[in-house]
C-alpha cells in the first residue's frame, strides 16, 4: 500500500476555543470572530490582547475567543475598552458591538471614545436588526424594512432614518482609520482580514481609534435562508452602506 502523506493546510486558530458557536446558520458573526482571532494569532499578540464583548448576539463572544475578555453592559463596550486601555496602554484592546449596542444605546460612548482618539479597535457589526432579542428595529434598519417592531416596514417619518454612524465617526479628528467591510463572500472576507490586521498594526503605533464596520446579515431575523439573506444584503444593505475606506491615514 502506498503511504499517503497528509499535510495540514488549514486549521482552527489557537486563539479560538473549541466551544461550538451558538450563531444561526449563515450568520456573519462566526466568520468575523474567526477572522479576528486569525489576525490575533498571525500577529502573535494573543497574550497582549484584551477584547470587550457587547450585549446582543455576540454577548457570548468570550466563550469562543481564547483571549482575556470582559463583558460590557449594553452600549458601554467602548467605555469599558477605554478603561482597560488607559490602565494597560501597552496592550491591544478591541471592542466588538452590534448596531443596537454601538449606534443606539451606546451612541454617546461611541462618539466620545472615537473623539478622544482612544487607541483601540472598534469592530461594529451592522445587520440592521436586533438579533438576540428577536428581530426588532435597529438604528441601522433600512427604510421600509420589516422587523418585529416595524411590522409594516420602517417609516422614516416617525421612526427616524437608518443611521450611518460610521460616516459620522469618520468626521472626528480622533478617528485614525475608518472602513466599512463585509463577510458575504470569500473576496470581501479577505479584505476584512486586511482591515483588521492593519488596525492592530496602527494600534501598535498608538495612532488613535480604528473603526471597522462589517455589514453583515441576520437570516433568522430577516426571515430568509442564508443564501437569500446574502443576496438581499448585496441588493439592499450594500447600496445604502457602501463598502470601502471612509478615512485612511495620510502617510
Amino acid at each position: 500500500m502506498r503511504d499517503i502523506h497528509m499535510e495540514v493546510v488549514y486549521q482552527r486558530p489557537t486563539t479560538l476555543t473549541e466551544t461550538p458557536m451558538h450563531y444561526c446558520p449563515g450568520c456573519g458573526h462566526g466568520v468575523v470572530h474567526k477572522i479576528l482571532m486569525e489576525v490575533v494569532e498571525e500577529l502573535g499578540i494573543q497574550s497582549e490582547t484584551i477584547g470587550v464583548a457587547p450585549v446582543g448576539c455576540s454577548v457570548f463572544a468570550y466563550d469562543y475567543m481564547n483571549i482575556d475578555m470582559q463583558e460590557a453592559a449594553h452600549g458601554r463596550a467602548s467605555a469599558v475598552a477605554t478603561g482597560i486601555k488607559r490602565v494597560l496602554p501597552g496592550k491591544y484592546v478591541f471592542s466588538y458591538q452590534g448596531d443596537g449596542d454601538l449606534a443606539a444605546i451606546g451612541t454617546g460612548e461611541t462618539i466620545h471614545t472615537v473623539n478622544r482618539g482612544e487607541n483601540i479597535l472598534m469592530v461594529f457589526i451592522n445587520n440592521g436588526i436586533y438579533g438576540m432579542t428577536g428581530g426588532q428595529m435597529a438604528p441601522t434598519t433600512l427604510e421600509g424594512m420589516k422587523t418585529s417592531t416595524t411590522p409594516f416596514g420602517r417609516d422614516v417619518r416617525t421612526m427616524g432614518f437608518p443611521l450611518k454612524i460610521t460616516e459620522l465617526v469618520a468626521q472626528l479628528p480622533g478617528a485614525y482609520y475608518v472602513t466599512r467591510q463585509a463577510v458575504y463572500n470569500a473576496q470581501v472576507v479577505r479584505k476584512l482580514k486586511k482591515a483588521l490586521t492593519q488596525s492592530f498594526l496602527y494600534q501598535r503605533r498608538n495612532k488613535g481609534t480604528c473603526f471597522v464596520e462589517v455589514v453583515s446579515n441576520c437570516p433568522s431575523g430577516w426571515k430568509m435562508t442564508p443564501v437569500e439573506a446574502n443576496k438581499w444584503l448585496m441588493e439592499h444593505m450594500i447600496p445604502y452602506y457602501p463598502l470601502g475606506d471612509l478615512k485612511v491615514p495620510k502617510e
Partner: peptide, 26 residues
C-alpha cells in the same frame, strides 16, 4: 496614574468597570 473626565456618569462607571477588570485600583 490615569485621571479622565468622561462624557457622562454612565460612561465613567463603565470605564471603572474596564479598569478594575484589568486589575487597577480605581
Amino acid at each position: 496614574v490615569v485621571v479622565l473626565q468622561a462624557e457622562s456618569e454612565v460612561a465613567a462607571i463603565n470605564m471603572v468597570y474596564g479598569a478594575a477588570g484589568a486589575g487597577a485600583r480605581v
